[in-house]
Nucleic acid binder design. Structure first.
Lengths: 150, 150
DNA sequence: TTCTAAATTAGAATAAAATTCTTTAAATAC
DNA sequence: GTATTTAAAGAATTTTATTCTAATTTAGAA
């Protein structure tokens, strides 16, 4: 695996914050000409340092500004139950992130809803029909303080 | 505030997953010519539906694949302590997300480190010097199941 | 140090994409 | 039904991405 240098790291940090700079602009920022910057970015893409480029959307405007962290305990801890849970959760659009975690609970999900009413509906109707779930515990987000991706 | 239609929504969903499509490609996907697609995207940007465009990086390759959710209780619940905490946390690069939450703890942080050793160093040396923190509780991520941004 | 080879860069040339503009069509109001 | 507004298509233009070649730098060996 190729090694990356300081200029690569600069480019990654810049693009992580704003991927719309032109190569000419990037070149000026890192004191190079456009060609090597273009080649460096292609190399970083091909070597997997850059996974993809995405647009960040305004959750509030799209009626998804109500964030809840939802802890999940499975009914039992066998592979089938676990696989079933993962498979079910992947289909639920309100679940934007999900992690298998240490501690009292098995999974931590980040859920994105319009409001409390929507979240309640999500818990009753969506989670309610996921057979593998034993219990849940909701932690509500009152405000977002920091988000390096937002 | 302008209203968005189904095609706008399609464009948002596509760009949220991959912002590198050309307008020509997008036009084909939504069965329009490039011009109206271009104008729609500009409108979505100007109206704030699209906040920004970013590159997603490979955390593992950048030595940041060890994820921990860290719950925080403040020493006291007055405005000064709270503001001091927020100000301190914004400067710590390992903290990639932070939320003010309901429940037993005051804040939930997502922390990104190289490994357990790095995380330990983060807790001792970085969090350890944030005066406003009363107590912490760490939940370790064993695996990422779903991430609509990753 | 000096030579050689490999890698990197700069700058020009080309291809492709974004962006603008004008015309046409469609939808809505009157 | 006509007028008016809005949205779309297609062509023209500008900008950017991408490729190519030559020059420079770097690293290693003699």
């Amino acid at each position: 695996m190729e090694q990356i240098d300081d200029i690569d790291l600069q480019l990654l940090n810049i693009l992580h914050d704003n991927s719309k700079y032109t190569v000419k602009e990037l070149a000026k920022m890192v004191n190079l000409s456009p060609s090597p910057v273009f080649e460096r970015i292609k190399r970083l893409e091909n070597n997997g340092y850059i996974k993809k480029y995405i647009a960040l959307l305004d959750a509030e405007k799209l009626n998804r500004g109500f964030i809840v962290f939802c802890n999940i305990k499975l009914k039992q801890h066998d592979r089938n139950i676990g696989n079933q849970f993962v498979s079910d959760i992947m289909k639920i659009e309100e679940v934007v992130e999900c992690y298998n975690i240490s501690g009292d609970y098995d999974f931590l999900m980040k859920v994105s809803a319009k409001d409390m009413k929507h979240y309640q509906d999500f818990v009753f109707n969506k989670l309610g029909s996921v057979e593998s779930i034993g219990s849940t515990q909701s932690t509500f987000v009152m405000s977002e303080i920091k988000n390096m991706y937002g």
